[in-house]
Design a protein around this nucleic acid. Structure first.
Length: 856
RNA sequence: GCGAGGGUGGCGGAAUUGGCAUACGCGCUGGAUUUAGGAUCCAGUCCGCCGAAAGCGGGUGCGGGUUCAAGUCCCGCCCCUCGCACCA
């Protein structure tokens, strides 16, 4: 129940939200004097907004408000990543139009975010599903196409049999579809790709610029994802036909130990290899089986490797020896060259494969200080570096040197040489879906693939489609008025590309559109981009480390190379916030969330089955969400903000609890009561005072204030909002207990406290600020400066230890010397007792902190 | 398996150039106020030594080490979370 002591949150919040809006307080000032671009990852507008979504925006808002009060002109926009599958699924399930569904959700999201009073410049709102936006997404596609960075390729791709669509590598999690968890299979399709591998080296290299500015684990994740590996390409030849069969290896020194080769089942050269093989049918059957298996099945580690002999041989580049070629599904088609050389003596996988199929083992490396391993006795491959043996002209070389020499020899022979391989794959962007940006390409029988001329953009999505059920092709393929068009080159009949783009294309450049959201000539004006880029602080979930954050860096670099941008990287600082978890009770029998009053002694009363207590990320499907709207109505936006910020370190996961809400609410109420009590004292000038001439009580408060300013500034800049709030709570207690409430120190503390609180509880602060008689916003203040002379009290407590154990604490003036402190310490009863019968051997003094007496 | 992060009261968490472990909040206990409840305010709250105070001892996942001094540094383990995982 709300008592009359509780502050009227909703009333205050609505009042100031309206006032901020009328005053245009958060409108971007362009050109900026001193710019600061704060960006939170924009949301996909799904159903309603819950507290789990909020953390991102609350953190961003604190950053933005602190920067406003540090005198920056900020750009702090919000928009919608509004293309994507859920809209289409809703259309399939409920028959609603994806566009209408999306618009409704956007309206709900916008209204909810507005209720939170976050400092967005709403005039810059964008939605990726808006033709005014996706026109430029298409423009970017064409831009890449012109640069040779968008190309079409027939390939085996990740295919989700349930969603009936192609997935990027990044959308395959543990071999399963990210969305529906169905095992992904391989399917051969012709698709559009972005050549992100051309940028692999720079994407890796420029991570160095981000060190100390991005979370180290995100940098590491990207590094692993790019997966640079230095090695050697070695070209074998197919016996008889002379087809080149390149392999990639990091161990060129083991080349003389090759006893077989293995090629991936989906390798494009395989059909040619087996064309005239007696084993052809057997191989084809093996390939069929392999492609049916899901990635998850194929890559299960404990699974025994399988393979089948192709009946064909390759020629060793040095020895001319015949090497049998096998097909094996443990070889990945999309890493290296898709063919590996089998060196069973020195590679564990090859060893296992050779053992299974009775292939010979040939030792070509021996330990530096040991004997040559004997093949018949080996139980595992010898994978260490050592000295090359049985390797012709290279015999006797240490591995490291051998790797170099073999590579340069191959280079001379034109049969390979040093090369670099990346784990990163080209970015497959075609999606067989309706609700995305159409790929702006036209296929003409005569002219081939032709880009849609820029002046014809956007290629609009047709409306009024009824049937969105996945059929293995884009719903657009069945819309003749969309598909059928004229070739822009020859004017003859032609067909549009029926696919739409991966939504990660939409979000790879949105930070640029915010800079110039209504530009009708260009995606953005390069001059404006120069004024505002890079994003100074980007805030979002760590789950985007290898998807969005790599794609955005890639697109940014392409635009940088074209001279449209002046910075190499889009996001200068990145902060990744933790999740919001909510405890709930789950009945495994009824398969639903159960309220506490339905449970008795751990048993679900309704069905008699035991209840499981779970702590998981808030999600609508689980039913453990706290919706924002009703919460704000009941407790207010500021309470929601404080709850989130105080619960723990912002980068860590937090549990949303009622107790946390109570604590936040209580804190704000304490502030409200203190200010209500002294409301009549808030107005008017505060007389100047000399801190040196204050009473002890006053000086203590003055020092507490300086300390708090110092700590709040420091903690806020480091994203330690929980400890910043702890300091504010301490100062509040100090002010509440302060008795000389007419003192200028007290009055000044009240004033500055409001400003310190403002980034965290903006509505309450704005209200209290106006109680001082101010007419301008609390955010037109500078964040308070501390008086550096007083950030520490002049009294200090020195711990007196004897042999490392604290035996007394002394209250003394700061700055005492060791001798003085020791004299004082020796007067202490407890110290004397512990020194009885002992000699002081040595003392260690840490000024103003500690004195350790070593005695014995 | 590899990589990263983590393990501190009943709970969320503070404290890192090595220097008073447990700030702040929640919960709990007692008191004040109140017809009562709620709300609020004050005091207490790491554990143990029968209660209290003083005092003493123990204590930051486990075992060792360096040091006058270790949550913090070093060595060896255990456990948890996340990411990658047949990458040739």
């Amino acid at each position: 129940m709300r008592s009359k002591d509780e502050y009227p949150a909703r009333e205050i919040e609505e009042k100031w939200q309206k006032w901020w809006n009328d005053k245009g307080l958060y409108l971007t000032k362009h050109p900026p004097r001193q710019k600061y671009y704060v960006l939170e990852m924009f949301p996909y507008p799904s159903g309603d907004l819950h507290m789990g979504h909020l953390k991102n925006y609350v953190i961003g808002d604190v950053v933005a408000r602190v920067k406003i009060m540090e005198g920056y002109d900020i750009l702090h926009p919000m928009g919608w990543d509004s293309f994507g599958l859920p809209a289409e699924n809703a259309a399939i399930k409920k028959g609603v139009d994806p566009k209408k569904w999306t618009e409704n959700n956007i309206n709900t999201y916008r209204n909810t975010l507005k209720k939170l009073g976050i400092s967005y410049d709403w005039t810059r709102e964008i939605a990726t599903s808006d033709p005014d936006y996706y026109r430029w997404t298409q423009w970017i596609f064409l831009f890449l196409y012109k640069k040779g960075l968008a190309y079409r390729k027939k390939d085996y791709v990740n295919w989700c049999p349930n969603c009936k669509t192609v997935l990027a590598n990044e959308q395959v999690i543990d071999g399963k579809c990210e969305r529906c968890k169905t095992p992904v299979v391989k399917k051969e399709l012709e698709q559009w790709f972005f050549k992100i591998t051309d940028y692999a080296e720079r994407l890796l290299e420029d991570l160095k610029e981000l060190e100390g500015k991005w979370p180290p684990q995100v940098l590491k994740l990207q590094e692993n994802w790019i997966g640079r590996s230095e090695g050697c390409e070695i070209v074998f030849e197919l016996e008889g036909k002379g087809i080149k069969l390149p392999v990639f290896t990091t161990r060129a020194d083991t080349l003389f130990g090759v006893t077989f080769m293995t090629i991936a089942p989906e390798h494009y050269l395989l059909p040619e290899i087996i064309e005239d093989s007696p084993h052809r049918e057997e191989v084809e059957e093996y390939v069929r089986q392999a492609l049916l298996k899901s990635e998850a099945e194929r890559t299960r580690e404990e699974r025994e490797k399988t393979g089948v002999f192709t009946g064909k041989y390759a020629i060793h580049p040095f020895t001319g020896e015949k090497i049998p070629i096998w097909v094996g599904d443990y070889v990945l088609a999309n890493y290296g060259t898709g063919i590996v050389m089998g060196v069973p003596a020195h590679d564990q996988r090859d060893f296992e494969f050779a053992k299974k199929y009775g292939l010979p083992i040939r030792v070509v490396i021996k330990p530096e200080d040991g004997d040559e391993p004997r093949p018949e006795e080996m139980e595992a491959a010898f994978e260490d570096y050592g000295v090359m043996i049985n390797s012709g002209e290279f015999t006797g070389l240490p591995s490291r040197e051998g790797i170099e020499r073999v590579a340069s020899r191959l280079r001379e022979m034109g049969k390979g040489g040093k090369t670099v391989s990346y784990r990163l794959k080209d970015w497959l962007i075609s999606r067989q879906r309706y609700w995305g940006a159409p790929i702006p390409m036209i296929h003409c029988e005569k002219c081939g693939y032709v880009p849609v001329p820029e002046d014809q953009l956007p290629v609009r999505l047709p409306e009024g489609i009824r049937d969105f059920r996945p059929k293995g092709r884009s719903p657009l393929a069945d819309v003749p008025e969309f598909i059928e068009t004229k070739c822009p080159v020859c004017g003859g009949p032609a067909r549009r590309d029926p696919d739409t783009m991966d939504t990660f294309v939409d979000s790879s450049w949105y930070h640029l559109r915010y800079i110039d959201p209504r530009n009708e000539e260009m995606p953005f004006d390069p001059e404006k981009a120069e004024a505002w880029m890079p994003v100074d602080q980007y805030i979002g979930g760590a789950e985007h480390a290898t998807k969005h954050l790599i794609y955005a860096r890639f697109i940014h670099k392409v635009l940088y190379d074209a001279g449209l941008l002046k910075t190499k990287e889009p996001y200068l600082h990145l902060f990744t916030q933790g999740l919001v978890l909510k405890r709930f009770f789950w009945c495994n029998h009824c398969l639903r969330v159960v309220e506490e009053n339905e449970i008795e002694k751990g048993i679900h009363k309704a069905c008699g089955n035991p209840i499981e207590e779970r702590l998981e990320m808030m999600s609508k499907s689980k039913g453990n969400i706290v919706p924002v709207g009703p919460f704000v109505e009941k407790h207010g936006a500021d309470t929601a903000r404080i709850t989130i910020l105080f619960a723990g370190p912002a980068e860590k996961d937090m549990e949303w609890t009622d107790a946390g809400v109570e604590g936040a609410r209580r804190f704000l109420n304490r502030i409200w009561r203190l200010y209500s009590k002294h409301r009549d004292k808030l107005r008017g000038e505060i007389p100047d005072f000399d801190p040196e001439k204050l009473s002890k009580e006053e000086k203590d408060l003055y020092i507490a204030l300086q300390k708090t300013i110092f700590e709040v500034r420091k903690d806020s800049s480091e994203f330690h909002f929980n400890t910043a709030l702890a300091r504010l709570m301490e100062l509040l207690t100090a002010m509440s207990r302060f008795e000389k409430t007419d003192s200028p120190v007290f009055l000044r503390s009240l004033r500055e406290y409001i400003v310190l609180l403002a980034p965290f509880a903006p509505h309450l602060s704005e209200e209290l600020w106006h109680w001082t008689g101010a007419e301008s916003s609390v955010f037109s203040n500078r964040f308070p400066e501390y008086d550096p002379r007083y950030t520490r009290g002049e009294l200090t407590e020195i711990a007196v230890q004897i042999n490392g154990k604290v035996r007394a604490r002394l209250q003394v003036q700061r700055g005492l010397e060791e001798k003085q402190v020791l004299d004082l310490a020796l007067k202490e009863e407890n110290v004397r007792r512990h020194l009885q019968g002992k000699n002081i051997r040595k003392t260690i003094y840490v000024k103003d902190k500690l004195l350790n007496i070593v005695a014995g």
